[in-house]
């Protein structure tokens, strides 16, 4: 009986702690869903701010946190309410489906959406269209005609730039390996193909020895990259297509004592990658503009609410950064820790 009581108290404490933390997180953002649910689709009612749910592909990675920061900034600047949510992994199609369904049910002024699987979301997008809710895509966007605009990085062009830099740094010939986060998401496919196609077209002497998928899991990516480097002692370069992948490559190079012998090129930022570029372990990386992606999608949503016409594609840009420009005014604001 006594252990029972102790246990219940412990469980209750856990629940209270979890709830308190869970409530604290949304409260810190600019969200106010309760008053926003009744916001008219036109957004002309000045009493209630227009409500724009932002549904992303995730929230755990630093990249999504930066997108979130950008969308919150836009919400503050443009006087609208937003909520930011996303499934735990990019494989959770069903979970995102439910999030989008719930968002449409609230009849918001507009929706910002980055689909984990575009085709699966079509019925809901059709529903939003009939209800007159404008959809703005961001990041991987939505593979359909329904979104009025999409704020995204041109990942194919960005990965092609990475390929050019890699070829330049290894003297336009030799073996290169590629580590990608997954083989099904839009960003995974575009970055892989953008890199491989550019190599095939412009740098025929560069041989791609391996393309592997580490699910963005730092530990798995480390062990994968180690095996690839062991199997190819003459490997000259390694491209990691997202933050988790490149951290794996950097760990592998470090653990095998091959720092400086392999040209490592990454994607996005994060503290470990920034440190590696400063120390010279990583040659450089492509950065997107995650804050810009978040900002531009909310901005486009507000324009759509006001009936302005939009360009279909809002290119949020990408940049190459290395030791020389990492602290520059152009690059520094784009990097997240």
């Amino acid at each position: 009986m006594k252990t029972h009581k102790v246990l219940f108290v412990l469980m209750a404490m856990l629940v209270v702690f979890a709830l308190a933390a869970g409530c604290a997180a949304p409260a810190a953002t600019t969200t106010d869903t309760s008053s926003a649910t009744t916001a008219p689709a036109t957004g002309s009612d000045a009493a209630a701010k227009p409500y724009i749910p932002v549904i992303s592909k995730g929230f755990q990675h630093q990249f999504w946190q930066a997108v979130k920061a950008g969308s919150e900034q836009a919400a503050a600047d443009l006087n609208v309410d937003i909520t930011f949510e996303g499934p735990e992994t990019e494989a959770m199609v069903d979970k995102q489906y439910e999030m989008l369904q719930a968002a449409i049910a609230k009849n918001p002024a507009a929706i910002c959406f980055a689909a984990v699987d575009s085709k699966a979301m079509v019925p809901l997008l059709e529903e939003a269209k009939t209800k007159g809710i404008p959809i703005i895509g961001f990041d991987s966007g939505v593979d359909s005609d329904i979104p009025l605009a999409t704020a995204a990085t041109d990942n194919i062009a960005a990965a092609a730039l990475a390929a050019d830099k890699m070829a330049e740094l290894i003297g336009d010939s030799g073996k290169v390996a590629v580590l990608v986060h997954d083989q099904t998401s839009r960003t995974g496919i575009d970055r892989r193909d953008g890199f491989l196609n550019r190599m095939a077209e412009a740098h025929p002497n560069v041989e791609i020895v391996n393309v592997d998928y580490g699910a963005g899991d730092q530990l798995k990516s480390t062990d994968l990259a180690k095996a690839v480097i062991q199997a190819n002692p003459d490997l000259k370069g390694y491209f990691g297509a997202n933050e988790g992948s490149i951290i794996g490559v950097l760990n592998a190079v470090k653990e095998l004592g091959k720092e400086g012998q392999i040209v490592v090129i990454g994607y996005d930022s994060g503290q470990q990658q920034i440190d590696a570029i400063n120390s010279g372990a990583e040659a450089g990386a492509i950065t997107q503009n995650p804050v810009g992606i978040g900002y531009k999608c909310v901005e486009a949503a507000v324009k759509a609410i006001n009936g302005e016409t939009l360009d279909k594609v809002i290119d949020t840009g990408f940049f190459w950064y290395d030791k020389t420009n990492i602290d520059s005014d152009q690059i520094k604001p784009l990097l997240y820790q």
């Binding site: 856990l14 979890a18 869970g22 997180a25 946190q65 503290q271 470990q272």
Partner: peptide, 19 residues
């Protein structure tokens, strides 16, 4: 699920480095 949630809450959804 509890452990997963608490990891995210306690870390503030950010990696903690040992630099």
């Amino acid at each position: 699920m509890i452990a997963r949630g608490l990891s995210l809450v306690i870390s503030g959804v950010k990696p903690i480095y040992f630099n």
